[in-house]
Simulated assay, not measured.
Amino acid sequence: MPIHNQNRGWSYSLTASLILMAPFDLLASLAMDIYLPVISEMPKILQTSPQAIQLTLSLYLIVLGLGQLAFGPMSDQVGRRPVLLFGAFLFAGSSLLISVLSSANLFIALRVLQGLGASAMLVATFATVRDVYGGRPESALIYSLFSSMLAFVPALGPIAGALIANQFSWRGIFIFLGVASFAASLHAFLRWPETLLTPSVQKRVSFKEILSHQHFWTYTVGFSAAMGSFFVFFSTAPRILIERQGLSQTEFSFAFASVALVMVISARGAKNFINRWKIQGCFKRGLGVLILGAIILALIEMTVGQNLWTVLASMSLIAFGIVLTVSVTANGALERFAHVAGSATALYYSIQSLIVGTVGTFFIMILPGDTIWPLAAFSALMASVSLGLLKGTR
Rank of each mutant, 00 (worst) to 15 (best):
L297D: 01
I274K: 13
G288W: 09
K284P: 01
F231T: 06
I296D: 03
V304T: 15
Y219V: 09
S235E: 10
S229F: 05
T218W: 13
G281K: 06
G222Q: 12
F252D: 00
G228K: 11
L308K: 12
K284F: 11
K284W: 10
G293N: 08
F230I: 14
F231G: 06
E301K: 11
M227Y: 14
F231P: 01
S253P: 07
L290C: 03
I296E: 06
K271W: 05
I265M: 11
A225Q: 07
K278H: 13
T250F: 12
A294G: 06
F283P: 08
A257I: 02
A270T: 06
A226G: 13
R244Y: 02
A298I: 03
A255R: 00
A237G: 11
Q280Y: 04
I265G: 00
G228I: 08
A255G: 06
L308T: 15
T218F: 14
L261R: 01
M302Y: 09
Q306W: 05
K284L: 14
R285N: 13
S224Q: 09
G269W: 12
F254K: 06
N307M: 08
V221Y: 07
W277T: 01
F252Q: 01
I291Y: 08
R276K: 14
L297P: 09
F231N: 11
I279H: 01
V221D: 13
S266E: 04
E243C: 02
F231E: 07
G281D: 09
Y219Q: 04
R276Y: 13
E251D: 14
W277S: 05
F283L: 10
I279D: 03
L247D: 00
G246Q: 12
M227G: 01
R276M: 10
S248W: 10
G228H: 13
C282G: 13
E301T: 11
C282N: 15
L261A: 00
A225H: 11
G281V: 08
T303W: 14
I291T: 04
R268C: 05
F231S: 05
F231V: 15
S224M: 09
Q280S: 12
L261I: 15
K271N: 08
L292P: 05
F230V: 12
V259I: 11
S253N: 03
T250M: 13
G269V: 01
S224P: 07
L292F: 15
V289R: 06
F254E: 02
M263R: 00
N307V: 05
S258Y: 03
Y219I: 05
V221S: 06
G228F: 07
A257L: 02
M302K: 12
M263V: 06
G293C: 10
E243N: 15
I291E: 02
R244Q: 15
